[in-house]
């Protein structure tokens, strides 16, 4: 028996001492470190390569940091790289993508949030069937619908235009976004909705004055989903637009996969990083808004 440890007076008191370098800690943090390095390495290689000149790349050591830092590849990727007949770089694709993403995100969220609100709160006749059909749409493979949509767009005269693509993105965003908004609005206290009805607010009054102000978190989630989804889209972009309206992803592919001339790895890396920048920025600035609880105070504590 340990005479000190089991003594009542002068024995242990206060917090139990902890060892910082216990075997457990070393194991946990070691694993985390290795996994983090594994995931960050490709990004490191891309950044490093994009800052090198071609002669340095030909040396073959992809992990070595650049001896001479040059931003030439970035400038070239943005403004000079050639795809087909156009030689104005990714900038064209970037602005096309902006012109596609902004209206698509706005339209799809505007329509889906009203859909979700109507389904959650107004329970019109046939609401359940409508909802089931909508959700069912989410499970039909895109490939099945590609050609019919080409025909539809051609018939309404939108084939090959940016607005045609916006329309397609809006429709394909509908099932998941409607589900998202419906579930969120269902989770808001129903009594708020009833109180607003007693107070004489109508369909739009309740939507804009009561529901919208309480729904910032779900709108942020929807915006993140849509911006990254639509920005990263390749399939619809390549099918429903013409070469000079191609979104950034399609143009990136055309730059990287061009078979003529020398493979400019540094330009390709810079172009890829540029394309990925928008979703990254969205994640960084919106992360905090995810966790905001806004309905606090609606219900008595």
């Amino acid at each position: 028996m340990d005479p000190v440890r089991n003594r009542v007076d002068g024995g242990p008191s206060g917090p139990r001492p902890r060892r910082r370098f216990s075997r457990r800690n070393i194991f946990i943090y070691g694993t985390l470190f290795v996994v983090a390095v594994y995931y960050l390495l490709p990004l490191y290689v891309m950044i490093v390569t994009s800052l090198k000149g071609m002669p340095e790349i030909r040396l073959g050591n992809i992990f070595s940091p650049p001896v001479e830092i040059t931003f030439e590849p970035w400038v070239k990727a943005w403004a000079e790289a050639c795809t087909g007949l156009n030689c104005d770089g990714l900038s064209r694709g970037f602005w096309n993508s902006v012109r596609i993403t902004v209206p698509s995100v706005f339209l799809s969220i505007a329509v889906a949030s009203v859909n979700g609100y109507a389904l959650a709160n107004w329970r019109f006749r046939g609401a359940d069937i409508f909802f089931t059909i909508l959700i069912f749409g989410a499970f039909i493979p895109y490939q099945v619908m590609l050609y019919p949509i080409v025909i539809i767009l051609r018939e309404i005269g939108l084939y090959g235009t940016l607005w045609g693509l916006v329309l397609v993105h809006t429709i394909f965003g509908m099932p998941i976004l409607t589900l998202l908004f419906r579930n969120y609005f269902t989770s808001l206290p129903e009594e708020l909705f009833k109180a607003a009805r007693v107070d004489g607010a109508g369909f739009w009054g309740i939507y804009f004055r009561i529901m919208l102000p309480m729904s910032l978190p779900i709108f942020v989630v929807a915006i993140i989903l849509q911006v990254t989804g639509i920005w990263n889209d390749f399939l619809f972009g390549v099918i429903y637009t013409k070469p000079d309206l191609y979104p950034m992803t399609v143009q990136l592919n055309n730059i990287v996969n061009s078979v003529q001339g020398v493979k400019e790895y540094n330009v390709n890396m810079a172009a890829t990083l540029l394309t990925g920048l928008v979703p990254l920025v969205i994640y960084f600035i919106s992360g905090k808004l995810f966790v905001r609880g806004i309905a606090a105070g609606a219900v008595k504590g």
């Binding site: 206290p189 009594e191 708020l192 004055r209 009561i210 606090a296 105070g297 609606a298 219900v299």
Partner: peptide
């Protein structure tokens, strides 16, 4: 209402 349902 039971929860008072004040507009938060």
């Amino acid at each position: 209402f039971q929860s008072y349902a004040l507009y938060p």
